[in-house]
Design a protein around this nucleic acid. Structure first.
Lengths: 257, 257
DNA sequence: AAATTTTCTGTGCATTTCAACATCATGATG
DNA sequence: CATCATGATGTTGAAATGCACAGAAAATTT
């Protein structure tokens, strides 16, 4: 029942990230990697221990036992936060008065959902956090239910796809794990792929929110071919090669400032 | 919303909404999101602090207490909290290994949902807070979507009822605003009534969680006749008259210790 | 085991960094 | 013109960081 948000920032977050994938992190290593004094790392660790997230061992620290998966989700959500909010701000310009807009359960879409407050729009969401944000902001919305999918805190499955088929948003905003000009848009979780495909089918206009770290990457399964999207919003100019493919497919590209 | 006119408007309102559901908001982020100078955000925060709504932390601010609808809901959750958890504990005994259980969006059902951690069950929920609680506890669940209904933080409407019709829980736990032997179980919001009716139709066994303050009360619309429920869990013995009616309808009555 | 060395830790203090604020300038609004 | 909201700038102070050193804990040797 924790609120899900991480009051930790900067280097301490990075320390946690390293700790998630490792049995143990060492003070000396961390000091070297971050280019700061060992004493600074010790103080960071002390703070993380105070928050109950880690425990010290001589020479380093490790994650507390049960913290693993919830933490990794939060850390993923907090990564590239600047790029994601930049993309969200740029995408906001695509939203018009009275639109009905669907959002997938990605953290980028969540950043956009948080900017909706006060707008005269209706939303359709598939993620738990987006629903909570909209409930707080007073924007009317429809939740598309389904089986809970923990890795993305989203809802998926037959129930989701059938409900989604009955909805017809003006615009669909979604994100992916990978963007590859030839292979299209891909994701690493099959339930997510099905849900996103259902959303794309329902929407009149599809807008992909893809931060630059996703370019050239491919994941398990294809959500859609590159040609199936109408707009791509990103935070850094794509390569000339990608750009050519996008132009050939007549896709509008928006690069966030 | 019967709140007196708050002297908060525009961006400050947005800041508050942004702060709901986040542990803390940062001056820098807010300045970026609203496209204004940091100094302006500081002045906004100062004003919000003066009104007792937020408290400053270095670099940002956090909500002092929940507010608005969120507040009224929380307060409702806090009222009779002992009775509700007592009822929830008693109701827990009705849950068996492997059950699939549906819960309405009442605070009493939420109290029961919070006790599910570690149980080998599947859940079906219609409330935002119950979903968040289950997501944190790791119990697998299905969310039944629909239109968001702010007073109960639940989902309702056509989408809800159609999805619910496809689900068949072993047991349905729900609560009501009023319980009256002759008028049956009643609630004051029509969307809620429809949703609860849909849940009752789908379930093999229906269990009403009714704290003693609800006895003899009646609200806007009827959810079900008294005879339609299988079990009644409450926190104080019903009147002899009510008890007779319940026995006549062959309803099992459980009084929480 | 005792003694010695090595490594790690935490404290106290100097230095740097950056949020907060006071202040003034600008511009919109009526 | 008066007022208000906002932006810009320089100053102040608190927090973060670096640094040196002393004490504690492990590792090593005797």
């Amino acid at each position: 029942m924790s609120d899900g948000a991480l009051p930790i920032m900067g280097r301490q977050q990075d320390i946690l990230r390293r700790a998630v994938g490792a049995v143990l992190v060492r003070v000396k290593d961390l000091a070297g990697e971050f280019g700061v004094h060992e004493m600074t790392i010790r103080r960071d660790l002390e703070s993380l221990v105070d928050q109950g997230l880690m425990e010290r061992v001589r020479g380093g620290a490790r994650l507390r036992e049960r913290m693993g998966e919830e933490l990794s989700h939060q850390l993923r959500a907090a990564r590239n936060i600047e790029a994601k909010t930049a993309i969200a701000r740029a995408a906001l310009a695509l939203i018009e008065e009275g639109d009905t807009i669907a959002f997938d359960a990605s953290t980028t879409a969540l950043a956009l959902v948080r900017l909706l407050q006060g707008r005269n729009v209706s939303a359709i969401v598939s993620g738990l956090d987006a629903a909570a944000a909209l409930a707080a902001s007073g924007v009317p919305f429809v939740m598309v239910g389904g089986s809970f999918h923990a890795p993305a805190r989203s809802f998926t499955g037959v129930l989701f796809e059938e409900a989604m088929a009955r909805l017809h948003p003006d615009k669909v905003f979604f994100s992916t794990k990978g963007f590859h000009a030839a292979l299209g848009l891909t994701d690493s979780h099959l339930p997510e792929v099905g849900a996103k495909r259902a959303m794309l089918r329902s929407g009149a206009m599809t807008i992909a929110l893809v931060d630059s770290s996703k370019f050239g990457r491919r994941a398990l399964a294809t959500i859609a071919a590159t040609t199936e999207i109408d707009v791509l919003v990103t935070d850094a100019p794509p390569s000339d090669q990608d750009m050519a493919a996008l132009e050939a497919a007549d896709i509008r590209v928006i690069v966030a400032a």
